[in-house]
Amino acid sequence: MSAIFEVENLSLHYLSRWGQKIHAVTDVSFSMKKGEILGIAGESGCGKSTLVNGLMGLFIPPLYPTSGDVRVNGESLMNRTPQDIRSNILSRKVSMIPQGAFNALNPTRKVKDIAADVIVAHLQKGGVTRKESYDLLRERFDLFGMDTERILNSFPIQLTAGERQRSVIGISTLLNPQMVIADEPTSALDVSTQKVVIKMIFDLLEKNIFSTMIFITHELPLLRHVADNIGIMYAGEFVEYGTAEQIVFDPRHPYTKALMGAMLSAEPGQREKKPVAIEGAPPSLAKIISGCRFAERCPSARPDCKLRSQAIRMVAGRQVRCEYAD
């Protein structure tokens, strides 16, 4: 089967308030088959959220594409206006589940009106009336096993955080998008609510509402249970990209190793372990960095690491951006 979503050497930059070019994403490549779930992990500020906009082809100043290509079913999303992307790509081809459900929902409108707006806006040509769109909504929300009537007739503020986030997911996937990009969909929730929300996402996958997803989070253990493949981002680059098993149980890039080594869990023996702590912060992306971006903080850095920028190479069956990894 051919790839449904392809990203080729994508680099993005934005202009800071002082007109500086910040190279937020550099040379990201991957391709996804239908039915695949790709997890992207990295610390805050590593370029995850910028990447999300780039993946949707949504370039609103100050964000600009530097180079590369993004294709959905072979159709390129680059060099298109935000209006074009919003009306022809979003919701139907690529849909996004944002992090803060509260910001995503207009506080002055009921959930059913927010949702109906999405349907009416995208299916106008098919001539869906508002009333028909409500029926569509009810049908869909019933599918999730939610308290449909109450939730649809509520204002966002009357719902719990979990209900809000599930409503957002319901609305984002109303038009059965081919691809869903979930940007930290559970980061603002506590663990129990997170589990409910993830269950709902799994439910949607099982019911074939959508089948391909990019899941972005800073929580690696969560990705282990959600994703097929994982990309680890550091300072705007993919430093390691492989299957979830490979990344979680057998990391090869020093940064991934550090991330895994810093995990704390309530499991026997964990109290005696010393978590890996790394000093310092990722480099500023305002300059083009010549050497390896992790070299500054890398526990196994060698003198020449800072001199050469690192290229992707295959190590133990996955991509690693480190010439000394083995």
Partner: peptide, 11 residues
């Protein structure tokens, strides 16, 4: 609000 490595650092 921080990732795992920084968390270990803060601890």
């Amino acid at each position: 609000m921080v990732d795992a490595c920084v968390r270990a650092n803060i601890l």
